[in-house]
Design a binder for these strands. Structure first.
Lengths: 109, 109
DNA sequence: TTGACATGAAACCATTTGGTTTTATATATA
DNA sequence: TATATATAAAACCAAATGGTTTCATGTCAA
């Protein structure tokens, strides 16, 4: 079950967890090794490492090895495709605004 | 565990499943009762009903009762907040483009 | 070179998720 | 009224998810 080849799947799946979204925000301020990332959360390092693995599967982070550290940095590009998917719905959001505006104008007659 | 009061949580959770994203796309073309929605997927109606429940929890759909039918329609407004969250990262995506552009320009010297 | 540090990897666990089948209820329709 | 239709609701299940603890490995530094 759940064997869709939806190109967005890995990204939306990665975004579904609040810890992972927080990690992305954190990495937007600069690259960090795992230990440093983990110290910001109330969970163990292996738990954070698993989240990082899922972010990696969505290609949302890049990893470079530096001695015994593995530096994680944000790879924002794939977020664009999720953003594009969502932006399709902007037209309906705009429609709602237009409808509202029309109603307001009519009520001013 | 997982008791975040993250305002985006319900929305991103709803978006994490490909069936639910497909339902949103489908509803963007017009409102439909459950049975009609379910007939488009290779799963039982109760399964689709559960997906609709999760979409409802994210306030992404509205439901109006019409006799024995329950008409589901897209409520696109909350998608804006997910879109806003993602658009924060556009600056980094743009940075990448800028960097690339700069590199290209330098290589042309 | 010895010990501390940063990480990976594996085994394990409870809960959630995404599906099913079955049963019940309210509304249309012949 | 009897029957078919649209849905809800509950019980159940396998697999995925999000966490833990424990152990192994490679790298840095005294």
């Amino acid at each position: 079950m759940m064997n869709y080849h939806d190109p967005h799947q890995h990204i939306f799946r990665a975004l579904a967890d609040p810890t992972r979204r927080a990690i992305l925000s954190m990495l937007s301020q600069g690259e960090r090794p795992i230990g440093e990332i983990a110290s910001e959360f109330e969970m163990t390092r292996p738990a954070v490492a698993k989240h990082l693995k899922i972010l990696k599967e969505g290609d949302l982070i890049s990893i470079t090895e530096a001695g015994r550290e593995r530096i994680h940095s944000l790879n924002p590009t794939p977020l664009k495709s999720a953003s594009d998917w969502l932006n399709f719905f902007d037209q309906f959001w705009d429609d709602k605004l237009t409808q509202l505006k029309t109603q307001v104008e009519q009520s001013n007659d």
